[in-house]
C-alpha cells in the first residue's frame, strides 16, 4: 500500500464517518467534549459589553485561504453564525471585519441569513455591519487600528487567518478597556498572541470552536470524526514506525 492510497483511505474514512455520525448523533446523547473556559469568558464578555453599551468587534481574518489551517476562511465563517444574533443591533453594536473581499461576501450572506428571523426593520436592510478596513493583511491592520481607537470596544473576538499584526489589534482593544479572545488561524498569530492574550485557542483547538458556539449535530459529528481520525493516525504512526524499524516497511 502506498502513502497516496493511505491518503485516499483517510479522506474516504473521514467522509463516511462525518456523514454517518451526522445522522447517528441527531437526537442522541451529545458527544462530551472538553470545556473551554476561554470561550465561556468570551460569551460572558460579549454580554457584559452589551450591558455596558460597548461595541463587539468580530474579526474574520485577513485572507480567504489560510495555509496553517487549510480552509480557515471557511472555518471562520462556520464560527460566525454562533456569534450573530438579532441583538447585535442592541447597545454598542457588533461589527464584523475582514481583510478579504471574498470573506466579506460570505460573511454578509451569513449575517443576513441569521438576521432573517430578527423581526426588526433594523435587521432587514443591507447596511449590515460587515466591514473591510483594508484589502490586504497589513492594510487591514492599518485600517483596523484607528477604527478600534475611535469606537468603544467591549469585546474583541478574532477568528480566521491572520498574521503577526494581531498583537497590535489586541493592544488597541486593551487600551480601550476591551476584552480579547483569539482563535488565531495561523501559528504565527498564535505565537505572537501567546504572551498577550489569555483567552487564546491554540492549534487544533480552533476547530472545536464552531461546535462550542453552536452545539449542533454536524458540529458534534465533526468533533467525533476528528477524534477518531486522530487516534487512528496515532496508531498508524506507532505501527508504521515499528514496522520500519523491523525492516518490514
Amino acid at each position: 500500500m502506498t502513502w497516496t492510497q493511505i491518503g485516499w483511505i483517510i479522506i474516504g474514512l473521514a467522509a463516511v464517518l462525518l456523514a454517518g455520525l451526522n445522522v447517528l448523533i441527531r437526537g442522541r446523547k451529545p458527544y462530551q467534549v472538553r470545556e473551554n473556559p476561554a470561550l465561556k469568558r468570551l460569551q460572558d464578555h460579549r454580554v457584559v459589553a452589551v450591558e455596558r453599551g460597548k461595541g463587539r468587534q468580530v474579526i474574520l481574518g485577513d485572507s480567504f485561504w489560510s495555509h496553517a489551517y487549510p480552509g480557515l476562511g471557511l472555518h471562520a465563517l462556520s464560527a460566525l453564525p454562533g456569534l450573530v444574533s438579532p441583538e447585535d443591533k442592541g447597545e454598542g453594536g457588533q461589527v464584523v471585519s475582514t481583510g478579504s473581499g471574498a470573506l466579506v461576501l460570505f460573511a454578509r450572506e451569513i449575517v443576513q441569513g441569521r438576521y432573517q428571523d430578527g423581526f426588526s426593520p433594523d435587521l432587514q436592510d443591507r447596511k449590515l455591519p460587515v466591514s473591510l478596513p483594508g484589502p490586504t493583511a497589513l492594510s487591514f491592520t492599518a485600517g483596523l487600528l484607528p477604527e478600534l481607537s475611535m469606537h468603544t470596544i467591549g469585546s474583541l473576538a478574532m477568528f480566521g487567518s491572520f498574521g503577526m499584526g494581531a498583537p497590535l489589534w489586541a493592544e488597541a482593544a486593551y487600551i480601550k478597556g476591551g476584552q480579547v479572545f483569539a482563535a488565531a488561524g495561523s501559528i504565527t498569530a498564535q505565537a505572537a498572541l501567546f504572551l498577550t492574550v489569555r483567552d487564546l485557542l491554540i492549534g487544533e483547538e480552533v476547530f472545536m470552536l464552531p461546535g462550542l458556539l453552536a452545539p449542533t449535530a454536524p458540529n458534534q459529528a465533526a468533533w467525533l470524526t476528528e477524534d477518531i481520525l486522530r487516534v487512528a493516525l496515532m496508531l498508524l504512526l506507532i505501527v508504521a514506525a515499528t514496522l520500519k524499524m523491523a525492516g518490514l516497511l
Binding site: V50, E51, P86, G90, E91, G118, F119
Partner: peptide, 12 residues
C-alpha cells in the same frame, strides 16, 4: 431596561 429594549427591537 437593556433586555426590554432588545426585545422591543425584534419582538415588540
Amino acid at each position: 431596561d437593556w433586555l426590554t429594549r432588545i426585545r422591543k427591537k425584534h419582538r415588540p
